[in-house]
């Protein structure tokens, strides 16, 4: 059966659409402009940036410019605060939970390597802001000093940063200067340690190591090969 599309009424009147009604897609120039605007706002506080054309933009600012950068971005149109968190770049001293516990542990790197836009400290705070008018987002990072893990609070810039900073405080042990109330958010009040730090031990795994993949079983109709080799899995 063939269908005559001419018999179907159009969903909207397409004749009224002109070329000027189609907004330009956010592209390279847009994100370069954002970086240029941020550089003119906070100057030397902008340490490094990365623009992936048509994809995303990352910016790293100096620790003392963290709050100023948030303020400048808010004033330049990034009104929507997505989230704020932190990254621990330390490679996990416990490995990654390999599938086969009997295999020798693989070589693990121990030096700290930061991601996009680099860095010089173990911890970085980062936040995601969105400009809902221009449909563009930015990821902004700052180093957290290794000796004293404190950065400025964003609560005076975005009120919604309050709970995000509380969570970052309990999970990573990073303090926020100027935050009104850094109580624990999710953890019990008397919890000790910071669970999202890479060197936080999972006691259950120390007591009972990861057993590996134990639920390997043949599909229905396939011959069972596990026991024919004589050593289980």
């Amino acid at each position: 059966m063939t269908r005559s599309w001419s018999a179907v009424a159009p969903l909207s009147d397409t004749t009224a659409t002109t070329e000027t009604d189609v907004p330009a897609l956010p592209g390279d120039g847009l994100r370069e402009g954002i970086v240029a605007q941020l550089r003119s706002d906070i100057g030397a506080g902008l340490v490094d940036t990365l623009v992936k054309p048509g994809v995303d933009v990352w910016a790293r600012v100096a620790t003392e410019s963290w709050r100023d950068a948030g303020l400048a971005l808010r004033e330049s149109g990034f009104h929507y605060f997505c989230f704020l968190s932190a990254i621990d770049w330390l490679p996990s001293p416990f490995g990654r939970g390999e599938d086969d516990p009997s295999a020798p542990p693989p070589e693990r790197r121990t030096e700290i390597v930061q991601g996009y836009t680099g860095g010089s400290t173990r911890f970085q705070v980062f936040a995601r802001l969105t400009d809902i008018q221009r449909h563009v987002g930015i990821t902004i990072k700052a180093d957290v000093p290794d000796d004293e893990q404190v950065v400025d609070s964003w609560t005076s810039v975005f009120a919604g940063a309050d709970w995000h900073e509380r969570e970052t405080h309990e999970m990573f042990g990073i303090s926020f200067r100027g935050h009104p109330d850094l109580r624990n958010m999710y953890l019990p009040t008397d919890f000790e340690g910071h669970p999202l730090r890479k060197d936080f031990p999972l006691l259950a795994r120390i007591v009972k190591p990861w057993p590996g993949i134990v639920d390997v079983e043949p599909l229905p109709g396939e011959p069972e090969e596990a026991d024919t080799e004589g050593n289980g899995e």
Binding site: G193, P195, R205
Partner: peptide, 9 residues
Amino acid sequence: YWDSYSVTK
């Protein structure tokens, strides 16, 4: 969540 830091076993 047998190895979680926050879950009661």
